[in-house]
Simulated assay, not measured.
Amino acid sequence: MKSLTVQDINAIINGDIVGQANLEITGLEHIQKANQHQATFIGNRKYAAMWNDSNAALAIVNDTISLEPGENRVLIKVKNADLAMAKLLDAFTPEPPHFESDIHPTAVIDASAKLGEGTKVGAGCYIGKDVVIGNGVVLYPNVTILDDTTIGDHTTVWSGTVIRERSVIGSYCIFHTNVSIGADGFGYRPSDDGRGLVKIPHIGNVVIGNGVEIGANTCVDRAKFSSTIIGDGCKIDNLVQIAHNCVLGRSCIMAGSSGLAGSVTLGDGVVIGGSASIKDHTTIHSGATIGAGSGVMNDVPAGKTVLGYPATDSREMLKQWVALRKLAR
C-alpha cells in the first residue's frame, strides 16, 4: 500500500497547508466514504458542508472555499482541486499488470515485424507482416496488430483491441479494452436491379496522432480512400463511433455513446457531449461544444454551444424548453 505524508502530497500539488501536517495518507476517497487515513477533495461549495461529518484526514480544497480543518485534520488549499486531484491520483496509481517476460511465448509475431527496445507483448497477441512498433510499447494479452501498421513510442494497447492493416498510430497513446481501429466503413448502395445492396469498399486507413486516448469498445473506421484522422491529444470515451473519413483536430473530446457519421470534420478543441449524434459531411469548427443527446444536422460555427434535437444555439433551445413547460401548465 502506498503512503504519503501531507508534506509529500503538498510537494506534488503545491498548495497551502492549514492545520496538522504530520499525518500519513494511504489513499484517496469520496468525502462521505473516506476513513481517517485517506484524503478527499472539495472543489465545489456544496460539498463543504460534508466536511464536518467526514472521517477523512485530509481535504484538498479550492482556495475560494472558506473551511476550517478541525481537530487532528488538515486542509491543503489550492487554486483548482480537480487538477490537484488528477496529480494525486497519478501518484497513488497502483502498479500495472505484471509481465513475466517481455515477449510472451504464446505471442505470434511475423518475422518481418520490427519491435523497438523495451516493448512488451502479452500472451496470445498477434503482430502481422511488416508491422513497426516503437520503443516502450505495451501490448496486453490478446491484442491483434495487422499488416503494415506502425505504432509510435510508449503507446499502451489493452486486451482485445484490434488494429487493422495500414493503420498509423502515434506515440504516448492509450487504447483501452476492445477498441477497434481501421475496420471497414459503413457504406452501401442499392444494386442496379433494386434487389439488394452493394458494399462500398473502403481502401483507406486510420491515422492517429500523439497522446490520444480511446475508451473501451470504441470504433474508428478506416476511410473509403485517404485517411480517417484523429488529431494529437484527442480524448475519446467508451462506446463512441467515429465513421469513415472523419477528421478530428487537436484536443477534441467525445463523451460516451456519441457518434460521428461519415466525413465529419471537427476543428481543434471541440467538445461533444454523451449520446450526441453528428450528421455526415458536417463541420464543427474549433472550440464549439455539442450538448449531450443533441443531434447536429448543420455546420456549427467556432466557439458556439448548441443543444437539442435538431441542435440549435443553446440559449435559444433553453428558451424553447421554458416556453414548452409554460404551455404544459
Results as ranks from 00 to 15, higher is better:
Arg222Cys: 06
Ala111Ser: 13
Glu165Lys: 13
Phe175Val: 02
Ala123Ser: 05
Ile229Glu: 02
Ala21Ile: 00
Leu327Asp: 01
His37Val: 01
Asn14Met: 14
Ile133Ser: 06
Asp90His: 10
Thr282Tyr: 01
Val212Met: 13
Ala39Asn: 11
Thr40Lys: 02
Gly185His: 04
Leu197Lys: 11
Gly256Arg: 08
Ala302Gly: 14
Gly160Lys: 00
Asn10Tyr: 01
Ala49Met: 00
Tyr47Val: 14
Val271Thr: 00
Ile12Gly: 05
Ser227Gly: 12
Val137Gln: 03
Asp221Leu: 06
Ala183Phe: 12
Thr64Val: 11
Leu248Lys: 10
Gly185Lys: 03
Gln38Leu: 10
Ser314Leu: 06
Val132Asp: 13
Leu146Cys: 13
Ser3Thr: 14
Ile133Cys: 07
Leu318Ile: 02
Asn35Lys: 10
Lys79Gly: 06
Gly274Cys: 02
His98Tyr: 04
Gly204Leu: 08
Lys279Gly: 01
Thr177Tyr: 10
Leu115Thr: 03
Ile31His: 08
Leu318Glu: 05
Ile242Cys: 06
Pro310Phe: 06
Asp63Ile: 08
Val138Leu: 14
Glu100His: 12
Gly170Glu: 01
Ala216Pro: 01
Ala57Trp: 12
Ala255Arg: 10
Phe175Ser: 00
Asp184Gln: 07
Asn35Arg: 07
Ala328Asn: 15
His285Gln: 12
Asn22Cys: 01
Asp237Ser: 12
Val207Ser: 11
Ile236Glu: 03
Gly287Met: 09
Ile12Asn: 04
Glu117Trp: 08
Leu28Pro: 08
Val74Trp: 06
Leu67Trp: 11
Asp153His: 14
Asp90Val: 09
Ser54Asp: 11
Gly308Val: 10
Phe225Thr: 13
Thr119Arg: 04
Val143Ile: 02
Gly116His: 04
Thr5Ser: 11
Asn72Phe: 13
Gly259Trp: 04
Ser277Lys: 05
Ser101Cys: 03
Asn217Cys: 12
Val271Pro: 00
Asn72Asp: 15
Ser227Ala: 15
Asn217His: 12
Asn35Asp: 14
Gln20Lys: 15
Lys129His: 13
Asp268Cys: 05
Arg45Pro: 08
His37Phe: 01
Phe92His: 09
Gly209Ile: 00
Ser263Met: 07
His281Cys: 07
Asp8Ser: 02
Val206Lys: 03
Pro141Asn: 07
Ala328Asp: 15
Leu307Tyr: 10
Asn210Cys: 04
Val78Gln: 05
Gly303Phe: 07
Ala113Gln: 13
Arg73Ile: 08
Ile208Cys: 10
Thr144His: 04
Gly308Lys: 09
Asn14Arg: 15
His285Phe: 02
